[in-house]
Write a protein that binds this DNA or RNA. Sequence first.
DNA 1: CTGAAAGCGCTTACAG
DNA 2: CTGAAAGCGCTTACAG
Lengths: 344, 344
Amino acid sequence: MATLKQVAAHAEVSVQTVSNALNAPHRLRPDTLQRVTRSIELLNYRPNRNARSLRTSAVELIGYCVPSWPDGQAHLVMDQFLHALCTAAETSGRHILLFTAPTGVDGMLVYDDLHARRLVDGFVLSQTETHDPRHGWLKEQQIPFVSFGRVWKESTQPGPWVDVDGAAGCAAAVRHLYETGRRRIGFLSWPKISGLAEDRLSGWRTACRELGLPHDAKLAVRCPEDTIDAGAQATAELLDADQPVDAIVAISDILALGALRELNRRGLRAGIDLGITGFDDSPLASVVSPALTSIRQPMDQIATELIDILTGPATDATGNGDTRPSTERLLEPEVVIRGSSGPG
Amino acid sequence: MATLKQVAAHAEVSVQTVSNALNAPHRLRPDTLQRVTRSIELLNYRPNRNARSLRTSAVELIGYCVPSWPDGQAHLVMDQFLHALCTAAETSGRHILLFTAPTGVDGMLVYDDLHARRLVDGFVLSQTETHDPRHGWLKEQQIPFVSFGRVWKESTQPGPWVDVDGAAGCAAAVRHLYETGRRRIGFLSWPKISGLAEDRLSGWRTACRELGLPHDAKLAVRCPEDTIDAGAQATAELLDADQPVDAIVAISDILALGALRELNRRGLRAGIDLGITGFDDSPLASVVSPALTSIRQPMDQIATELIDILTGPATDATGNGDTRPSTERLLEPEVVIRGSSGPG
DNA sequence: CTGAAAGCGCTTACAG
DNA sequence: CTGAAAGCGCTTACAG
């Protein structure tokens, strides 16, 4: 492996000049730059990142904790998210370092260690939970981070975040179903009350109200778990009611698949007799028939914003200016229309 | 951040002794060790990894290229694999660095760069394809790597690998179905001929032959794509044949889900009227009803073996001893029995 | 525009 | 068992 010194000797300049050729080429005279560049190519020189990091104390590595399954819904799009995150990181010359950690506050030792030993510059958090302790802790330690997902139920959100407007997504799904002629739209939700679920539910409720559609509590079913079975059962309820629904907005693709199955069982046709939509546009959505209309989170944009915020000018690195507003970005999801919600 | 020097001053020893306390504690006298350890704790010292790596030229980081979807089957268990890989890496004091690269030989520039700039010590490869160029290239460059999955159709497999015995898995599924009384077992396969598909198919064929069951070509259907629809259609074929099958071994969970749907549509009960098995034990398997019997790859063991091989004594670092056999580990998958193949 | 020198925080032969 | 010293390969004020 060639070193800076060898390149310098070869190009007959000082190491400083070679370093500048790489990091501040405008400082060199064109002819010098060209000569150095030639030597770099000839010797196939690659700067040693460890040496650079030792000097600059920046590793250009971003930590991401791989969520441990079983977590239900989220991991069906995890590879999409990771791919987007990697790509965004690489665009800014960085990479993603993966690690595992216990959930809750116990895991913070791992985060702290990774940062203290300078394996990473900062963290991207996801799988944010209601009352997630990580954000507050990292902020207190002044360790750079950005969160995908808000910490719900907190009076103040610690630190910067990027999130998708679930309410807007569900509202858009309702409007889409309305436009295809549906007038009684049910909602399939999750069991435990979470900020995420309430957010999406509220979007359904608001849109129905605005369109003059029914939106009473009976139309929103909390499924006991995020499975196809539970989705099918809840769908059966909604179909067997005195006034059956003619469309269903599901809070996840899995539940929507359950709805699809129940329709199938009854000889009803999704997209014709009823409209069905899911959430996440997971790989499953395009694998069923009719394919599932689903609400897609803009993964690439999410990832880009996350990296932008994390690598941008430090929000609060000094500890002063604490009152400065955190960086917060709420992105719009998109309804990907497929067969299950009709031709429109 | 405390440094080695500061700890040394605090403990009133040389930096060398502190370093030894961390890396070779047996060299210190117990009382010295204790004193140093106390100083380390008091100052909350964490060794700077970049400095260490610069010195030792080992970064303790393993590169893994995130596969770009859509790739069909594999990404449903990607998070399981990543989690296992991370855990195994951490057990050996290492971490996973994620990156993206173009497929094929173009991507090798990325691999080379990552290694040359010392961002990683080596690579774990997965999504191995027939005629995958990466293995040969990395071997030639003497860049450490280990592959999850064999390069099929090569006369000699370049470099060490870990793989799962797909044939054994499918054979086990056939035997399991036989034990639950099935006597005419179909096979659902993929469109393009790949080493992976042929391997699994051969397991079905061999087991059927050994049990005296039919295994003619008509019983093995190549689905045009890895979707629920395709699986359902192929299942319909197998059921409408002159001699209908009473069980189906599917090469993927998705295809098995298609089989389940087709049975459902016909009023047939999986696990009672027919036995169905999938492959990969993806999150989907436990989310349907009846839950899907599926062949599970031992992810934790795979990951452990991969890291063991990669971090073990260099197989061929010197370039001599080229004839030494590569490290190769073929692991047994496990049939996870659920409702879709009957109570047994 | 270019160069000589110090230093980032470790580890590792080498002496004592 | 312990210590003084060199060096891993860079970057960065500081002079010239």
